[in-house]
Lab assay of single mutants.
Amino acid sequence: FKEKSRSVLREWYAHNPYPSPREKRELAEATGLTTTQVSNWFKNRRQRDR
């Protein structure tokens, strides 16, 4: 993950740790990642924050 992608994901996570499928698609387009990568990033981040 590039730093720019991570910062976008972190910003979204601060507002909503559970993005909808549509939001995940938008994030994937904005970051250049796949929706699976975005989903996994959020899943891992939520697990880490437990």
Rank of each mutant, 00 (worst) to 15 (best):
N16Q: 10
Y18D: 12
Q47V: 08
L9I: 02
E3K: 09
T36C: 09
S5V: 13
E3H: 08
T31P: 01
H15E: 15
A28Q: 04
V8H: 07
G32I: 01
L27C: 07
R45C: 04
L33K: 08
E26L: 04
T36H: 14
W41N: 05
A28C: 07
N16V: 03
R46W: 06
P21N: 10
T36L: 09
A14G: 09
T35S: 14
E3T: 04
F1K: 11
A28V: 04
V38W: 02
R45V: 12
T34D: 12
K24Q: 13
N16W: 02
A30V: 12
T31D: 00
L33T: 05
K2N: 13
N16T: 15
K43S: 11
H15D: 15
L27G: 01
K24L: 13
K4C: 12
L9W: 01
T34I: 02
L33W: 09
T36F: 08
E11P: 00
V8T: 14
Y18Q: 08
N40M: 12
W41S: 03
F42Y: 01
L27V: 08
E26A: 03
D49M: 05
T35Y: 15
K2H: 08
S7N: 13
T34A: 11
R22F: 14
K2V: 07
R25V: 15
D49Q: 04
P19C: 02
V8A: 11
P17Y: 04
D49P: 01
A30D: 10
K2A: 03
W12Y: 10
H15C: 11
H15W: 13
K24I: 07
T35M: 11
R6C: 09
F42S: 01
N44H: 14
Y13S: 02
T34S: 13
N40C: 08
Y13R: 00
N16G: 01
G32A: 11
R25G: 15
R6H: 11
L27A: 03
S5P: 11
N16K: 04
K24M: 11
G32M: 05
L27Q: 02
R10G: 10
H15R: 11
K24Y: 13
K43L: 08
W12K: 03
K24R: 11
R50G: 14
N44L: 07
S7A: 09
R50E: 12
N44Q: 09
D49E: 15
Q47F: 07
W12T: 12
T36G: 11
L27R: 00
G32W: 02
R46K: 04
K2D: 14
T36P: 10
R46F: 02
A28T: 07
A14W: 03
H15Q: 14
A28E: 05
R6F: 07
S39K: 09
Q47G: 10
R48V: 06
S7C: 12
Y13I: 00
Y18N: 12
A28H: 08
K4Y: 11
E29W: 02
E26K: 02
K43R: 08
T36W: 06
F1H: 05
R25Q: 13
G32E: 09
N44D: 11
E23P: 00
T31A: 12
P17W: 05
P21I: 13
W12V: 09
D49S: 04
R10L: 13
V38E: 03
P17D: 06
D49A: 06
F42R: 00
A28M: 08
E23M: 02
T35Q: 15
K2F: 13
A14F: 07
A14I: 15
W41Y: 13
E3M: 08
T34W: 02
F42V: 00
Y13D: 02
S39R: 13
S5A: 13
E26D: 09
P21M: 10
D49V: 04
L33D: 01
K2E: 09
E29L: 04
T35V: 13
R46Q: 10
A30T: 12
V38L: 03
T31H: 02
R48E: 14
P21S: 05
D49R: 03
K43Q: 12
R25K: 08
E26P: 00
K2Y: 04
P17E: 06
T36E: 10
T31N: 05
W41Q: 01
E26Q: 05
L27H: 01
V8R: 08
L9C: 03
A30S: 13
R46S: 05
L33Q: 03
R48L: 09
T36I: 11
R10Q: 07
R46H: 04
F1I: 14
T35R: 11
R25F: 15
R6T: 14
W12L: 06
S20T: 10
S7E: 15
E23R: 01
G32P: 02
K4S: 13
N40K: 14
E23I: 03
R50M: 10
R10H: 07
E26N: 02
R25M: 15
L33C: 06
Y13F: 05
R25D: 12
A14L: 11
Y18H: 14
S39N: 11
G32F: 06
R50V: 02
T34F: 03
A30C: 12
K24W: 08
P21D: 14
S20E: 11
K2W: 07
E11G: 04
E11C: 04
S5M: 13
E3W: 03
E26V: 05
Y13K: 00
W41T: 01
P21A: 08
S20L: 12
V38R: 00
N16A: 05
S20D: 15
P17V: 11
S20N: 05
S5Y: 05
A30H: 08
R10S: 14
R45M: 14
E3G: 06
Y13N: 00
R45Y: 05
E11Y: 00
R6Q: 12
S39G: 13
Y18E: 10
E26W: 04
T35W: 15
Y18C: 10
S20R: 04
R45E: 13
S5H: 12
W41H: 03
V38G: 04
Y13V: 02
F1M: 04
A14R: 07
E11Q: 06
N44A: 08
A30R: 12
R46A: 09
Y18M: 12
L27E: 00
R46P: 04
P19D: 01
K2C: 10
N16L: 03
A30L: 12
E3S: 07
E23D: 11
R45L: 06
Q37F: 04
E3I: 05
R48M: 04
F1L: 08
T36V: 09
K43C: 10
E29P: 00
R48A: 11
L33S: 05
K4G: 09
W12S: 07
K24T: 13
R6M: 13
K4D: 15
P17S: 08
T36D: 11
R10C: 13
V8K: 10
T31W: 01
E23F: 00
T31V: 08
R46E: 05
D49Y: 01
N16S: 14
V8S: 07
D49W: 00
Q47I: 03
S39M: 05
R50T: 02
P19G: 00
N44W: 02
S7H: 11
F42M: 04
R25W: 10
R22Q: 15
K4M: 11
E23H: 01
Q37K: 10
A14E: 14
E26T: 03
